[in-house]
Design a protein around this nucleic acid. Sequence first.
RNA 1: GCUGGCGUAGCUCAGUCGGCAGAGCGCGGGAUUUGUAAUCCCGUGGUCGCGGGUUCAAGUCCCGCCGCCAGCUCCA
Length: 641
Amino acid sequence: MRVKEKIKVSIEGREFEVERGTPLGEIFKEAGVKDALGGKIGDRIIDLQTPVMEGGEIKPVRKSDPESLEILRHSLAHIMAQALKELYGTEKVHLGVGPTTEEGFYYDVEVEGHRITEEDLPKIEEKMREIIKRDYPILRKELEREEAIKLFEKLKEKYKIEIINRIPPEEVISVYEQGDFIDLCKGPHLPSTGKAGAFKLTSISGAYWMGRADQPQLTRIYGMAFWSDKELRQRLRFYEEAKKRDHRKLGRELEFFLIDENVGAGLVLWLPRGSVYRRVLEDYWKEEHIKRGYEFVYTPHVGKSKLWEISGHLECYKPNMFPAMEMEGEEYYVKPMNCPFHIAIYKSKVRSYKELPIKLAELGTVYRYEMSGVLHGLMRVRGFTQDDAHIICTPEQVDDVIRDTLDLALSMLKDFGFEDFKIYISTKPEDAIGSEEQWEVSENALKKAVEDLGYTYEIDEGGGAFYGPKIDVKIRDAIGRLWQCSTIQFDFNLPERFDMTYVGPDNKKHRPYMIHRALLGSIERFTGILLEHYAGLLPVWLSPTQVRIVPIADRHVDYGRKVLEVLQREGFRADIDERDERMNAKIREAELMKIPFVLVVGDREAESGTVSVRSKKEGNLGSMTIEEFVKLLKEKIERKE
RNA sequence: GCUGGCGUAGCUCAGUCGGCAGAGCGCGGGAUUUGUAAUCCCGUGGUCGCGGGUUCAAGUCCCGCCGCCAGCUCCA
């Protein structure tokens, strides 16, 4: 079968000529590479049994390389599948897919006649350990398509057959066998089950077959896996720690917000302390937008059905909208987006090319009926405020507008202390509207803007909306999940639907470009991420209470009030704790509320006109004059520390 | 919406086999006047998420709904 063709491979700087199709393990043996579990060719990791079909660089993957975890986790997924089959019967367990994740693996399975719950996990783990102890060799085999289908039909693996039917004809079909368990798999795998490392089955959930809601739902069993127990325990501890910085917990503790069951799921009540922070955030946002030539507008929360008909929302977005309200024979909808209102403002008069770009901005509160299962604290809610704006410009202005918008987005994110974000550009999907030219101009503007500003991006090919391409900026939460914040989207649809025009130098009507953008995303989600990012200890400029004054005894209250007066005159958000409590208790409370500065005042301070400064971040800073403290605080706020 | 889990005081949680609803914090009152993360005493607090069922008896068992949590799908 094999053609005796020679290929050249290079391993750790040395060149070898081998027969095409030689298993990697044999190549390594010849090259004297020891301890490798597999190799990396380009982006693909293969194991020792996999034949090498093409020449080029092969990087050995050893236990010490992070890539080796991929091999470990793949094999553990198989070991788990084998354990399930042994526990619940080979023909009762139907396997879906079992890939690796960032820190482990999962397998989607269907078990006939048994509902797997978390209580089953220890039992499954135990069986897995048994299989590991048996140390089965893991053998790779390549099968003809017909053979493979026959095999998996015999095994009653209906999902595997579906997968085989989707494998392109030119690709080889491989299976891996360990003991009496055999599974369709590309690999890579360990040489034997005994080589597996530390693992723990962590959770269970439902997952649609093929990721499609119209397909059956399988049970997804998640596992975490590392080579050593130590790493595994570290990772588990990280999650314990992360729980403490969950914004839902912090939001309650710091009295930022509340979601009340009787108000409704996904509807946020902002408490006084959270509202102070929010006002600071919004003021900052407005300042930054004024600097960049935005004009602010206010628009209503409901609009007539006619508006949503023209915009197309009733056609495409209705399942996500709160249902209609009827008044005097007219239907109204609560707005899921601000665009139609901003467009109505644009259209209120004839626009000349001389006034473009027009940038209409609004902290616009919208309502979307999100499915109940997706709601998540402030991150995913049903009523939220977008830091929205629509930019209407000429084709010639597109490049500048996009660069300026992205620059504003990233400079704001930096002011909030975010450095670790990912930028995605989504391009034209299959069923897109708009001309080739529009798509080209827009996609180029997006890419150019990112490049000009010196960032890298990932392309989500075909991931754009049908009405235009976009840039998304995503930020991580406490446990590493990415959330979309900034979004800059072209829209070729609404200008057509609303017949938006401007008069050009040729005195003719032209169709403008419209860009829809939200830079923080929504105030709610942004706040959630911010709280997690800082574990609740917000930078001083955003902190609801910046300074708390703690008089040691009643007789120090007067002096404390004098200090308070100075601070408030300087524009700081300060208060004084006059309760009949011990100083220690007051300090503790201030610490728990994560107030950045506590000023302790007693006899010594009152006499010398000083304050004793305690910083949440740096501890006791000792005494200084009030003026010195004012200066210190002003600097911190100025630098947005 | 789907799969699995959970819902007891404002918060964190205990409540055994179906047999009188508990603790700490908080909150109210009093004492105390304190030097960098909890002073002491007394008091207050409940439609056990909501509705139905089984039972002599339900926080506990069963069913439906609501909400929350982890994912899936979707998304700012």
